[in-house]
Design a protein around this nucleic acid. Sequence first.
DNA 1: ACGGTTAATACT
DNA 2: TAGTATTAA
Length: 692
Amino acid sequence: MPVARRETCDARVIAHVDMDCFYVQVEQRKQPNLRGLPTAVIQYNSYKGGALIAVSYEARRCGVKRSMRGDEAKEACPQIELVQVPVARGKADLNSYRNAGSEVVSVLSHKGRCERASIDEVYLDLTPAAETMLMETSPESMQDFEEEVLKSHVLGLEIEDGSDAKEEVRKWLCRSDASYQDKLLACGALIVSDLRMQVLKETEFTCSAGIAHNKMLAKLASAMNKPAQQTVVPQSSVEGLLASLPIKKMKHLGGKLGSSLQSDLGVNTVGDLLQFSEEKLQQWYGINTGTWLWNIARGISGEEVEGRLLPKSHGSGKTFPGPQALKTIDSVQHWLNQLCEELNERLYSDLDQNKRIAQTLTLHGRAYKTGDSDSLRKFPSKSCPLRYGTRKIQEDALILFQAGLRDFLGSYSFKFHGNKNSIWGVTSLSVSASKIMSIPSGTHSIAKYFGGQYPSIDIVIDEAVPSSPSGSENCTGMVPYDLQLPYPDYTEIKHSNACLDPQDPLNHLFTKVEGLTEESSFTSPSGSEDRVTHGEPHRVLPAKDLSHVSNISSLKAVGKKKRAGKMLHENCSIINIFNNYHNSRSSLEQKNVSNAHDVKISSLLGSQSADDSYSTCNEEIDTNKGGCSVGVPQGREAWSSYNIDEIDPSIIDELPPEIQEEFRTWLRPQKRPNVAKRGSSITHYFSPDKSR
DNA sequence: ACGGTTAATACT
DNA sequence: TAGTATTAA
């Protein structure tokens, strides 16, 4: 949650690092002969030469743009080298780019708190590092600087014609009469240029960066001078910068909200927003967005750098444009199988490398209905608890699709159901895994149970662990681990204060999840009658008729209520054990657990081979004191097994500092409830952010 | 309605 | 909550 309190108290040093045409650089590193040539990365060569997704700066100089197709690019720049995105399972495979992004993160993350903002972007909070540098090795006392940092752009620093820009920058960097804030930024510039050189040395990738007092300004700055340059935003330059900055250039305002601002208020630059009171902006766009707008007009953004090096979800998707639209369940199933195979592979990599498990599987689709004016209707997304193993994910995804299709088609559809000349076409499919939790990996960690050292714990193991649990060889339905999350556990996570009602007639089901699982895993996808539904709000699918859908254990086990702290050992979910473990700790013991949360960076970035065994649970305590740990669950989820309201605030001081921080973040004032907006249909995305 | 794919976040 | 919508790279 953004908190702008710091904005007025102390100056932060925030950097945004943005890789230059990243996919191109990854391909050029693979094929060094392409270096320096106009190059673009395309996917799917079939239609008009494929779609460009990254363009080198040489090619941009030729007039090639990202919105072009391969053919157009060739036309604009005949010498252009077009490299195809790797394809696996008939779809684009972005793994090499993800892994390259991780390489970059591993270099950047050892200096200050680091947030992986996307596959090729990172935020850094360099405040402590800059403060330290200012105290110990202030640029003021430095004689010479690296060439690289002298190439920095400093906004508001006037370079007269004929004067030496590098000399001006050098003078700015070691100005002794600079404000404290500017001195910190100067330190930030030195640190960042150092980091960028390190990235180049260790990964062969160039990047650009912005250095400013908050994320918003750093992000703006990193895009101002590309490629391979950095830009500093002194506070004194902010007003002028925003005064002329087109509103649409601002992050979050590139879409409909930005357009509304233009049409509702006649605002064209960020500076134009200054004329409106906070109340006025709130009236138009709601409390949160209104306050956010009022702040950004003043260059204020209190968003914290999150300290997260890993993605929060994994997804795999594909589009089937126009004539390629899928018209049969069989073709849908085929593609779902491909997508799920990829997803499963990535889930196991994440488990292996980062000791994380995902809890929710979601299916998204797009579809049209033929001969229906309503054909643009949205295909609903559906989700359910995630069960590990290719086959299970495939089964569940198909079920979710069928549920979605049923909703999509509505009542009149059923007679054509399954007909060859179907009245629908699917134009895109995607499956994703979210609600990822990190499994603590220290001495007392249940991660050890994964390694089989404590086989008495009732985790279901279908089969011995193969070294590489990739999808295709799992078609037998055998999977290494049954990490399914039967419904009771799932709901329990979200409602740690839920109670077990001993009288609940569904309890017997609750304790029989394992049996149901075994039985249902191999049940044919139709005709099953022995499902159970109930009226609780945690159904995955609508309570309507599900009988056309196969059994799915997670849908069947629907008992929910449970007394906090009282666990049922018959229930074999890994999450349940996790919770049980946590809940049985004293607050003192929790210290140890928390300290052991972190996973070594090396395990994140080590060779990508999937054959590391889980038994190599390290007992190391994280050595990174900068709050930049890997694999630590962030935010509330990390503490989901505790009832927030039951935490005695006095225990917080007893916790290790990094955990205290997490608690405090978590206990910060929550966002104000939104109030009605007026005159705009734009929904609200922003949290209160204002300095007080 | 060939800017695809992936991911994050906010709202209801 | 689960589902929708917006944004961005």
